[in-house]
């Protein structure tokens, strides 16, 4: 636990999640429920690389969370940042993780939330932000609304490549986690995405497909190459 932060917290805290790079604690902050996200040092990293990664991601994440509130995307509000301790305090969003909703086979419900997620991601893209880790684990459903969370890998960018990476990552997360419903769920997401991204849709999808084909040992790539050769 970051020492400088303990003074800001009231009462006891509870571990919400041990993510890949950060620990999330539910705390009480200025009288309200809040989440403290601390990027813990990693022993396996060179100390300089470690503090660089933790510091940089904390700053970028904080800036992005703030920007998202400004443009009206459902996401937790930013409450406090401490770059030295690589810590962020944000609003606590109480609800269900979208992944669990899908795991419980509540597909039509999940579909409507995914459409909303598609719209939010598209709005971020139009604003010049890529999420960087679009998965069903990073969506919390609260009060019938889909909230985006975890902007640890987000960045300010308008490159189609980065936007398409979001789509690629989302497709892959469906393939690895929700393979039985992946086509259906992808349709829901893309229908929402399309309504907001509008004329950029075809281009982003095309690049997303290219990114996928760049992966190692993709059978489709061979067929693509043969097709291009024959044309």
């Amino acid at each position: 636990m970051a020492k400088g932060l303990t003074g800001l917290m009231e009462g006891k805290s509870e571990i919400l999640a041990l993510g890949a790079e950060a620990v999330l604690l539910k705390i009480s902050f200025l009288g309200m429920d809040a989440v403290l996200k601390v990027r813990l040092p990693k022993k396996y990293r060179d100390p300089e690389l470690d503090s660089f990664i933790r510091g940089k991601r904390t700053v970028v994440e904080a800036k992005i969370i703030k920007e998202l509130s400004d443009i009206g995307i459902n996401s937790p509000a930013l409450l406090y940042v401490d770059t030295k301790e690589a810590a962020i305090i944000m609003e606590y969003v109480k609800g269900e993780i979208l992944r669990d909703i899908i795991a419980q086979e509540r597909i039509s419900e999940a579909c409507s939330y995914l459409r909303e997620v598609g719209e939010s991601i598209a709005l971020m893209h139009r604003t010049g932000i890529a999420h960087g880790d679009v998965t069903t684990t990073n969506v919390i459903v609260s009060g019938n609304k889909a909230y985006l969370i975890d902007f640890g890998l987000s960045k300010f960018t308008s490159r189609v490549e980065d936007l398409a990476t979001d789509i690629h990552l989302f497709i892959r997360s469906l393939e690895s986690t929700h393979y039985t419903h992946k086509d259906e769920l992808l349709k829901c997401f893309l229908s929402g995405y399309k309504t907001v991204i509008k004329e950029l849709f075809d281009e982003v999808l095309k690049v997303a497909k290219e990114i996928r084909l760049r992966g190692r040992y993709v059978e489709e790539r061979k067929h693509e190459a043969i097709r291009n050769h024959n044309e």
Partner: peptide, 18 residues
């Protein structure tokens, strides 16, 4: 080496969390 290995371990950690 530090960067290459660390990035692999980070995605492994992400896989474990997921």
């Amino acid at each position: 080496r530090e960067i290459a290995y660390s990035s692999v371990i980070e995605v492994a950690e992400r896989g474990l969390a997921l």
